[in-house]
Design a protein around this nucleic acid. Structure first.
Lengths: 260, 260
DNA sequence: GAGTGGTCTAGACCACGTA
DNA sequence: ACGTGGTCTAGACCACTCG
């Protein structure tokens, strides 16, 4: 495949299109090594920087991943983890950790999670939802959840400091009866929740904590829990890497609508 | 802010971090212009390519957008469109177009959609779900939906050619009673659906059709509709740009679970 | 016409893993 | 020791928009 400098399509785009086609049609299958930068430079007769621009565009599309000093490789579509439809519906009440652990243990995976606790001025997104003013502090319980040794998601729960002062929530240990039970015992049972889900690129910090390859977007799921009187008492920020999650829903026993 | 060549952090990362911090703390607010490449080159005392690498990393994070030959600008967090919780639940049966049009007209937006129809060998993802063998063709109805003139999502519906041959589905017109009604009249009512949602970077074609700025991931929502006998008759591939959609769910009247 | 980002070239040195 | 990608430099020409 030759490139041309005459058209309005830049050379690096032609190279990227060429490689993308080879990945799409299986000429370069999952896990295969892309020709080295030196080889591509010779093959297309261009400067190294031009080849690198083509490669970096494929990296940012999530198609390939650089593994210096080995080479570039076609990205594996990872074994995909399904989340059941119960995700955004009422849940059976279970002790903390158990839902994540039990669900995935049953599937033969090895779940694990780390917990850190801190007191800090929360990010704006959390402040708004907890009705905190500038300077007010919150308690955060940060979890990183792993499956088979690979980071699977981030789960940061924020609480108003005044509501959890002195409770187990402030210590980095599993709470067998669940953090929500502790909140309820303090007089703040949660009876309503608002879930917001959107999609974006990860921050560098998120990419590091989740060991994300470049070109991997995340779904951000923010859950706000409310007391009966409408006070928000808890905000959970859940970060789901796009290459490790597929949400699956089933709709049954009805006429399926045509518009989505 | 000065850069150093001694640390293990590369210069372009330091520049990117510096600019990212200025965006985060509002020094560079939404819509603000970033200093030009020439200015940054002088300011940090580095080569242009180094500045460009820092800028391109911010572009790929979706933080800034280049608008040649004007400059780089902090990306607007667009006015956000909410999708109601009915999204993945049984829908009131409405004529085709009406749900999308009615929902958004009610919110004071101007919805519009284009429809193209084609016969083609569908992508692998669709072939698997329609149980098509190599070479079998499908009918696709491709919609681009716009709100206030901006592309909002892609909605491609695939049908087995043998099931819709000769019906209105093969013509690029609105079908008042809905494409599913037509299928039902042909003897293929849909009574079950499987929804799969995941997150990835757009293909170049999707980015073009949706006019996506670089650094914008998409949610891919694949809906497969089944007959009572289990035959898949219809696959809808829905592409939702991450910068234009927030899904919102409410959970009510229960004790909120602690694990997401 | 001046200034912008977009593209491309031709070099250089480095850290790192593998052979 | 060698080859890999990662980083950085110093140039060049272009198309485009704006004043």
């Amino acid at each position: 495949m030759a490139v041309t400098r005459q058209g309005r399509v830049s050379v690096w785009v032609q190279i990227a299109d060429d490689l993308r086609a080879k990945i799409a049609d299986g000429t370069l299958g999952a896990g295969a090594q892309i020709p080295t930068e030196a080889e591509l430079t010779a093959q297309y007769g261009v400067a190294r920087a031009t080849v690198r621009q083509a490669l970096s565009s494929l990296v940012n599309e999530g198609l390939i991943v650089p593994r210096a000093p080995r080479g570039y490789f076609v990205r594996h579509r990872k074994p995909i983890y399904y989340r059941p439809q119960t995700e955004f519906r009422p849940q059976p009440k279970t002790p903390e950790m158990d839902r994540f652990m039990a669900e995935h243990s049953a599937e033969g995976r090895k779940p694990r999670q780390t917990i850190e606790v801190g007191i800090l001025a929360p990010p704006a997104v959390v402040m708004e939802r907890l009705n905190l003013s500038d300077g007010e502090m919150a308690v955060v319980r940060r979890r990183v959840r792993y499956l088979d040794g690979e980071p699977f998601n981030l789960n940061d729960s924020y609480y108003r400091l005044d509501l959890v002062q002195g409770t187990e929530i402030m210590y980095p240990v599993d709470i067998a009866r669940g953090a929500n039970q502790v909140l309820a015992e303090q007089g703040y049972p949660q009876v309503r929740a608002l879930d917001e889900i959107y999609v974006r690129m990860p921050t560098p910090e998120e990419a590091q904590r989740l060991e994300l390859p470049p070109g991997t977007p995340v779904a951000c799921h923010i859950c706000t829990g409310f007391c009966p009187d409408g006070t928000p008492v808890r905000v959970v920020v859940n970060i789901l890497p796009g290459d490790r999650h597929v949400l699956v829903y089933e709709r049954d026993g009805m006429t399926v609508d045509g518009n989505d």
